[in-house]
């Protein structure tokens, strides 16, 4: 009897130390030689997905495929094809996904992305997420646009931390990414799970504490987004006003853009255009100066 208790205690102990908290892993690396041979992807901080920087611009590229910040035009073109490829892939493989956060807000305004949005957001159920991890992790998907003018490749990369459905240390709140391998722009995929089915049944949560009730999400509604079939949650209005407040549905000026009620699109305000023009001129002048200086040096 005592022996069995000891055995249980021992397994419990080993399972505790085997729990891959980043702190413990870095300790294990120094103490055990065999562990140190494994090439760690997280650079020791326990984070799976890395970005070249933390600000609004750099925080939205995947570090592995980043070669520099792209222009607004390239970003928009990338995102348009990226989300079409994503939604088509999920539909063709009978996988359920729906659009979320800023992407859902963009859909609400005109069925398109918000032009200033740096990344796109989608959600999947926890079960779908695990299936993605098992069947599709690290898979490449080639895409050809309807007019066959655009050919792209996307990587579906699933975070190995998807077994953890709580926030944890906050390093791995993004569960998966759909990455354009040309420039590193991506779609953030987050899974929703019922994290506390006993005390909060029917409450679905992502790792960043966005919570939804089952009857707000299901049954989903089929609609169009960026010209392809997409799904949105049942109570899309409530989800939007809960997250962004009522003002997000009435404010017609945002982030240097203005809603054109006739054309039904978000346009850059004249102020924004003027500023961009000034910045462009400044850059040009600086470059000119540089070339002149270089010529003088030579």
């Amino acid at each position: 009897m005592r022996l069995s208790i000891c055995a249980v205690a021992a397994t419990l102990f080993t399972s505790t130390i085997a729990a891959p908290t980043s702190k413990f892993d870095s300790l294990a690396n120094t103490s055990e030689e065999s562990e140190s041979e494994i090439v760690r992807r997280d650079g020791g901080d326990g984070k799976y997905f890395h970005e070249p920087g933390g600000d609004n611009t750099l925080g939205h590229y995947d570090k592995r495929y980043f070669h520099g910040v792209v222009s607004d035009e390239e970003r928009r073109d990338t995102q348009k094809h990226m989300v079409r490829a994503y939604l088509d892939f999920f539909r063709k493989n009978d996988l359920d996904t729906w659009i979320a956060h800023g992407t859902l807000l963009g859909w609400w305004w005109n069925g398109q992305r918000l032009p200033w949005d740096f990344d796109l957001d989608t959600q999947v159920s926890g079960a779908t997420l695990h299936h993605l991890g098992e069947a599709y992790n690290q898979t490449n998907h080639s895409y050809t646009s309807d007019d066959e003018q655009v050919k792209r490749t996307y990587l579906l990369d699933v975070n190995p931390w998807i077994w953890q459905r709580e926030r944890g240390d906050g390093m791995n709140i993004i569960d998966a990414r759909w990455i354009d391998v040309r420039n590193g722009l991506f779609i953030d995929i987050t899974g929703l799970s019922e994290t506390h089915p006993d005390s909060q049944p029917g409450i679905w949560s992502c790792k960043n504490y966005h919570r939804y009730r089952t009857d707000e999400l299901y049954p989903m509604r089929e609609t169009m987004f960026e010209g392809v079939i997409a799904k949105v949650p049942y109570s899309y209005d409530k989800i939007l006003t809960d997250e962004y407040k009522e003002s997000a549905l009435v404010n017609t000026q945002f982030n240097g853009h203005e809603w054109n009620p006739n054309a039904k699109i978000w346009e850059k305000t004249e102020e924004t255009l003027r500023q961009e023009e000034e910045e462009r001129k400044k850059k040009e002048e600086e470059e000119k100066k540089k070339t002149v200086e270089q010529a003088q040096m030579a």
Partner: peptide
Amino acid sequence: HLDTLPGPDESPDRKTDFLDEASHSHGD
């Protein structure tokens, strides 16, 4: 749908029910 996946989207005819699955809401 992928009928093998549990959750609110699963087929109502699903026979097996794994209690240790992350999802416990099997739709309406």
